[in-house]
Amino acid sequence: MRILLWHVHGSWTTAFVRGPHTYVVPVTPGRGPDGLGRAATFDWPASVVELPPDRLGEAGIDLVVVQRPHEPALVRRWLGLRPGTDVPAVYLEHNAPGGPVPDTRHPAADRPELTVVHVTHFNRLMWDCGTTPTTVIEHGIVDPGPLWTGRLERAAVVVNEPLRRGRTTGTDLLPYFSEAAPLDVFGMGTDGLAGRLGVPAERCNGQELVQSALHREMAERRVYLHPVRWTSLGLSLLEAMHLGMPVVALATTEVAEAVPARAGVVSNRPELLRDAIRDFIADPARARETGRAARAAALARYGLQRFLDDWEYLIKEVTR
């Protein structure tokens, strides 16, 4: 089967393209947002094929995975097909709703020819999709392995654009948590983070790394901190659990379901999270034990094969 999708979410796509199909990603001159092509910083198999828009119409596409509101129009323009009518299609929604939650209408609401696929049950609950059929396929992670050493008495945080996104990603909480342990914040747009937050650089260091190096660096830190107030379910959180890291996280959106009690400390009380960071830093044996439990929980719920099996079932349902 030949599946068309855009390169929108590199980490999610890295798991999705491990399936048994050919995955066609548009590529445009300059590799802009609608034509990034193959990933440069993620490990994608040879089954991911780049095609320019003028060749998509002859590619024999069997299924379209739409991820952004304007992509159905691109399918009509580039392939001459109406997604959901002329070619099977699903709308993959990565995000929790913004705006007037819980009354936010989904861009694909009242489109019975489509299926909206949510990545968490929380998102499905919060989005108003009207009469459009919905389902949930939870994340799957390409297992990086149990790399945790915890040798550095520091906490890892992974968030992209923390300064631009501000309170959404809990950036304002980082100075408070840096009192418990130095923070290494990994992700795009983290340069100059300490200065903008008014904390010493040694207490809050920003770095941007490719995924393979990121996992190794995360695993050197004693604990993983997830300070995000509002997001779907950060894949970096699930990756940290796969690495065998103990987790300290705000109990927002889907986190309370994703992180069982044995895997870390989840709370909406910042003082409890600050104390939990201190405790894990001071007790590497407890951090190791908690991290092992986090890895076991992540493998059981967010393993790659379960994810691919769920997608295979849905693909057969919408293309039959």
Rank of each mutant, 00 (worst) to 15 (best):
P29F: 12
L250W: 10
P200C: 07
T13C: 11
R2Y: 10
F307Q: 04
V117H: 03
A59N: 02
L235F: 14
V24E: 00
R154K: 12
D310L: 04
T85D: 09
G32Y: 12
H21R: 07
A108N: 05
V65C: 08
P52W: 06
I61N: 00
P284F: 11
A40K: 15
V8R: 13
A155Q: 02
P112R: 10
G35V: 01
W6N: 02
V49N: 00
A181C: 10
D128C: 08
E50Y: 00
L214I: 02
G192H: 08
G234I: 05
E179Y: 07
G60V: 05
L233G: 00
T168N: 10
D310A: 13
G264M: 09
A298E: 08
L79N: 03
G244A: 10
G98P: 01
E289K: 12
T149S: 15
R274N: 06
G19L: 07
L273V: 10
A201N: 11
T149G: 01
W148G: 00
H215E: 15
H9T: 11
W127A: 00
V318G: 01
R221I: 10
V101A: 10
V259A: 08
V101P: 02
T290A: 06
A296C: 07
V17D: 03
A282K: 12
H139G: 04
L56P: 00
N268K: 12
H21Y: 14
L125V: 06
A240N: 03
D283Q: 13
A213F: 13
T290S: 02
F42D: 02
A294C: 13
R216A: 15
E254Y: 06
G37Q: 05
A46E: 15
V75T: 10
G189I: 01
P26I: 01
P112N: 07
T231W: 09
N205R: 15
W78I: 02
H9S: 14
L214Y: 01
R301S: 14
S212L: 12
P29G: 05
R165E: 13
G187C: 12
R154N: 05
A194K: 03
N205E: 13
E202N: 04
T134L: 11
V24D: 00
A294G: 10
S212N: 08
R167C: 05
L308A: 02
E217C: 07
T252H: 14
V210Q: 14
R154Y: 07
T104D: 04
A251M: 09
G35L: 03
Y224H: 04
A219T: 06
F186P: 00
H21V: 04
L304N: 03
R229C: 04
G189A: 02
R151Q: 14
H139K: 15
R18T: 08
A258Q: 10
V158G: 01
R216S: 13
R295N: 05
L273K: 00
E208K: 09
F42C: 07
G99H: 14
V117S: 02
E254R: 09
L238G: 00
G189L: 03
G98V: 14
A287W: 08
T171D: 10
A155H: 03
L163H: 11
P112H: 09
T28W: 08
R216I: 11
L147R: 13
L79E: 04
V142I: 15
T104K: 02
L197N: 01
P146C: 09
T168P: 02
T169L: 14
V119C: 04
G130N: 08
L299W: 10
A156W: 07
P146R: 14
R111S: 07
L174F: 06
D310N: 14
M188H: 10
G130K: 04
A293H: 13
